[in-house]
């Protein structure tokens, strides 16, 4: 019943198993329930270095839950998540929090920037958390805002920016620590087509430049098309047939 077979990685097996070929992140048979509601029923996924994976599937299929488990926000009830050979799913809460701070970037649909802080301060926040001095952190933040094309708004509050600008600042915050993996849950869900395109193309460009792996959750095929590969989730399981590889 449960299909536990791992998804074939983009990188064909059989080649030299160098570091670049090994997945950065891999989940094996993870199970997660909210109380009595099963959300994930044995999911295995791998994300290669610099790979952009789109996770799609109908509403309520468990995409967000899968992402939160991969990012070490939620702890799966069974199965494990491995990041660069380290078991994330067994780590303590503070270890996972530190991992998310240093190696992962997370982007949500909206409402993640602190409304009282300026865009630059928001982007600098992860650096300040890891002890970088204010001046250096703000300088780095401004550079990242520039890479996402919103350096003009460094001193603006999120409430003074458009939805697309806010998302780009949020993407800058997710990338400021130069994470290995960027997670994005419906990053363009609240934006119109053009604003969404700007956000997505900038995320993809920056991720490619810095060889960051990206996991994008979306139910929009035009967003999934930014990915190298699609993983379809259905009823808490990977629908291997649906991604076109399994059939």
């Amino acid at each position: 019943m449960n299909r536990h077979a791992p998804i074939p990685s983009l990188h064909p097996a059989g080649g030299a198993t160098s570091d670049a070929d090994r997945p950065v992140l891999s989940a094996r048979s993870i199970v997660y329930s909210y109380g009595n509601t099963p959300a994930l029923r044995g999911v295995s996924v791998q994300v290669g270095a610099g790979e952009i994976v789109a996770i799609t599937g109908p509403s309520g299929s468990g995409k967000s839950t899968l992402m939160l488990c991969l990012a070490g926000v939620l702890q799966p009830d069974a199965g494990d998540v491995e990041f660069r050979g380290r078991l994330v799913s067994d780590a303590s809460e503070s270890e996972r929090s530190a991992l998310r701070r240093s190696d992962f970037g997370i982007l949500f649909q909206f409402g993640q920037l602190v409304p009282e802080l300026t865009a630059a301060e928001n982007v600098a926040l992860p650096l300040l958390l890891s002890g970088v001095k204010r001046k250096a952190a703000i300088t780095a933040a401004t550079t990242w805002l520039d890479r996402f094309g919103v350096a003009d708004h460094a001193a603006s509050r999120p409430t003074e920016m458009s939805g697309g600008q806010v998302q780009r600042a949020a993407a800058a915050r997710a990338m400021v620590t130069e994470p290995s993996v960027l997670f994005a849950d419906e990053p363009t869900g609240a934006l119109d087509a053009l604003a969404g395109e700007q956000v997505m193309s900038q995320i993809v460009r920056v991720a490619r430049e810095s060889a960051t792996s990206v996991v994008i959750i979306t139910h929009d095929a035009t967003v999934a098309a930014y990915g190298d590969r699609e993983v379809v989730v259905r009823d808490g399981m990977i629908d291997h047939a649906r991604d076109g590889i399994g059939s």
Binding site: A224, A241, G244, S247
Partner: peptide, 8 residues
């Protein structure tokens, strides 16, 4: 499914 994969 195949058609879908081709489209994507």
């Amino acid at each position: 499914r195949k058609q879908r994969a081709a489209h994507l």
